[in-house]
Amino acid sequence: MSETTPPQIGPVIQMARKARHLTLEQLAKLSGVSRSMLSQIERSETNPTFAVVWSLTQALNIEFSDLVSGDAVARKSALIDIVPADHVPLIASPDGACRLKILSPPALAGKTEWYQVEIEPGGALVSAPHAPRTREHFTALTDGIAITSGETTTALTAGEVARYAADVPHAISNTSDAVAGGWLVVLYN
């Protein structure tokens, strides 16, 4: 490669995607880059913008410098995959009262997902029904958590685990005067 030729990142993106067992569709959802654009990038038919490359590195959890140098796949094929704290995806409710850190790998989305949950006093994470037979497991790390599944509501104390149907309307609420939280595991059946 000459100094004026851009690096061929398409094959590196494709290897990183396949190493994570992601389809083009799944990577498109994770990155916000269209499936057709991803296909063109992987076949080296187009040179993506910096914004597109940034979205892909974030979705695949690879360093920009590793992508350009071609080291992305080798670094991630090690026995231990480290996600830097500032790269762990965070979801916040529109009112900011609930925050979920996505701890599960993207390849397990829609199968098994786990989250670190923090809820401000009086806040609630209210969910519509998930797919049939979906179950949630919530481990309270603090007092003040209430779990609602369908028509039933139960209070938890620190250390308790609630296992409940998530194919009905359900919610995790903070009934205390302090930030409350725990670990949430969602099992899709």
Rank of each mutant, 00 (worst) to 15 (best):
T112P: 06
P129S: 03
A124Y: 00
S149F: 09
T134Y: 11
L125D: 15
E113I: 07
A131C: 08
T142W: 08
G144H: 07
V126H: 06
F138E: 03
T142C: 10
Q116K: 04
G144F: 06
G122N: 07
V126G: 10
T139R: 04
E120P: 08
W114K: 01
A140T: 05
S127C: 12
H137K: 08
I147P: 14
A131I: 12
P121K: 07
L141Y: 14
A146M: 13
L125H: 14
R133E: 15
R133C: 08
W114I: 01
T148F: 01
D143A: 11
S127I: 00
T112A: 13
R135K: 12
E113C: 09
D143W: 07
S149K: 05
A140H: 03
A146S: 15
T134N: 07
G122F: 01
G123S: 09
S127H: 11
T139V: 15
T148G: 10
G144A: 06
L125R: 12
S149Q: 06
V126C: 10
T139G: 07
A146W: 02
H130Q: 13
A128S: 14
T139D: 00
T112D: 11
S127M: 09
T112Y: 14
P132A: 13
E136G: 14
H130G: 10
E136K: 07
T134I: 12
W114E: 01
G123Q: 07
Y115N: 03
Q116V: 09
T139P: 02
R133M: 03
G144K: 10
R133Q: 13
H130R: 09
D143C: 04
I119Q: 03
Q116I: 08
H137Q: 12
S149R: 00
Y115Q: 00
A131E: 15
A146Q: 05
P132I: 11
Y115G: 02
Y115L: 02
T148H: 03
I119N: 08
R135L: 13
G150F: 04
T134L: 13
S149G: 14
P132N: 04
H130S: 05
S127T: 09
P121R: 01
A124D: 09
L125T: 01
G144Y: 07
G123Y: 15
S149V: 01
T142V: 12
E136P: 01
T148D: 02
S127F: 08
A146N: 03
E118C: 04
R133W: 11
P129W: 05
I119H: 04
P121F: 05
I147K: 05
A124V: 10
G144V: 02
D143G: 03
P121T: 04
F138H: 05
P132T: 12
I145S: 07
F138L: 13
L125I: 06
A146I: 00
V126I: 15
S149D: 12
A128K: 15
T142Q: 08
E113F: 06
G150R: 02
G123E: 05
D143N: 06
R133P: 00
A140N: 01
W114D: 02
A140D: 00
T112H: 09
T139A: 13
T134A: 12
E120N: 11
G123I: 05
H130T: 08
L125G: 14
T134K: 13
E120A: 15
G144I: 02
V126Q: 07
W114Q: 00
I145K: 00
A146G: 03
